Simulated scan of single mutants.
Amino acid sequence: MLIGDFNAKVGSKQDEAETSVSYHGLGSRNERGDTLIDFAHHNKLYIMNTFFKKRNSKKWTWTSPDSKTKNAIDFIISNRKDVIKDVSVLNRFSIGSDHRIVRAEIKINIKKERTNMILKKNHKEWVAPENKDSYKECIASNLNYENTNTIDEIYENIKGATQTAIEKFCPKKVKEQKLNQRTELLMKQRRDMEDKSTQEYRTLNREIPKEIRKHRRQQNTEKIRNVIEKNQSLKVLRNSTMGRKEIQKIKDMHGNIVTHKQETYTLLNFSIKNFTHQNSRGSEPTSESYCRGAPRILRPVRPPGSPGPSAGPDVQQIRDLVVRV
């Protein structure tokens, strides 16, 4: 949890891709606010002041000496928004400062948190079983006690030998890149701009969320394809994909956007039935056989009596599978 004066104005949420802020901020956003939001987004943090609806008189945390300018620049930032139940600004105390006290109400299940800390997690082995002997031999060959006279020299000797073996037999896990190079380049270009009122700045504000959503869809599509090809379970699919848990809107065959939840599921079921029906008759599905937004990569259900493996539970429960597309 981060608490303090960040000297930044973050304003309110401007796009659905901004998960670190919500719609209840104060005022407009400045350059330092963009930097703070980018920092929170990369570190999976939430600026909790913006998540609770308050009157504007209960939002500002700093006032100018002439009391004409009031901004919210003191924030409570956390990586767990589920435990913070409220954030409020107190104006009943006179502390001799141009800032006001910011208070957060936190509710923690101590028993649950203690249990999670005590339980041992099932960590994977650092070294593959077939490399254990080579790992030990590498450490033994790099140890040299001839020129070690003090405890610090012995420690550095053991540390160097261990690090050499780790780099050779324990490759680091590559962290998934959540932002592609184009998105990072656009964000850097926006940060470097001095004039925030130009058309180019507004264009960047529209392009960056589009690139984030596009990259996220590509990642989820690739993960779904891998899960289907490996014939893995739905649990693996839910744990591997990211983003929204449900489809919020979809286009029908006439190009109209449908946002109602029940109508969205009806369109998906209709498109999937047409998709599988076309494949069961041996013909390729056309663009008119399913609405826009239905997945193109799903393996078709084989008709009864056809050669090849039968449809598994992933294909039978196709609605659950496409929920994360």
Rank of each mutant, 00 (worst) to 15 (best):
I212G: 01
T266E: 07
L234M: 07
P304M: 03
I228F: 07
D152L: 12
N239A: 13
D86I: 05
R217K: 15
N256T: 12
I250W: 03
S197L: 12
N269G: 03
I224R: 09
T276W: 02
E130R: 10
I3K: 00
I224C: 07
A17T: 06
I37D: 07
L237A: 05
K124L: 14
I250C: 03
E284F: 13
K44Q: 11
E125H: 15
R182S: 05
I250M: 06
T164Y: 11
E113H: 09
L179Q: 11
F270V: 00
N274Q: 05
F39K: 02
K44M: 08
N7T: 04
D38C: 07
H277W: 01
R191G: 10
A40D: 02
R114F: 13
T61G: 00
Q316E: 13
S289T: 06
K235D: 07
K112Q: 15
K175E: 10
S22G: 12
L143W: 08
K58A: 15
E184P: 00
K58W: 11
K58C: 13
E211N: 08
K251L: 11
I47C: 08
S271R: 05
R32G: 08
P285C: 09
V21R: 03
D98I: 02
P295L: 12
F93V: 14
Q232R: 11
H277A: 08
E105A: 10
R32K: 13
I154S: 07
K121A: 12
V21F: 04
Q199K: 13
T50H: 01
N71Y: 03
P309D: 06
H42Q: 04
I76F: 09
I106Q: 04
K223V: 14
T286W: 03
T241N: 02
T259I: 02
S12I: 06
P303S: 14
D82E: 15
K85E: 12
S289I: 04
K188M: 10
T19W: 04
H41C: 01
N30P: 04
W60Y: 13
D5H: 02
S310V: 11
D74I: 08
D320G: 14
L298I: 14
R103Q: 14
I3E: 01
Q248A: 14
Y290L: 10
D152G: 03
I297H: 14
L298Q: 05
R103A: 14
H215I: 00
D195H: 08
Q248V: 11
N149K: 14
P171E: 06
I47A: 13
Y46P: 04
A161L: 07
N30E: 05
I166M: 03
R319I: 13
N239K: 13
D86G: 08
I257E: 01
K230P: 00
N147D: 15
N109E: 11
G33H: 00
K261D: 07
I84N: 02
T264G: 02
Y135F: 15
M193S: 09
H24I: 12
G33F: 06
R80E: 08
D320S: 13
T69Y: 01
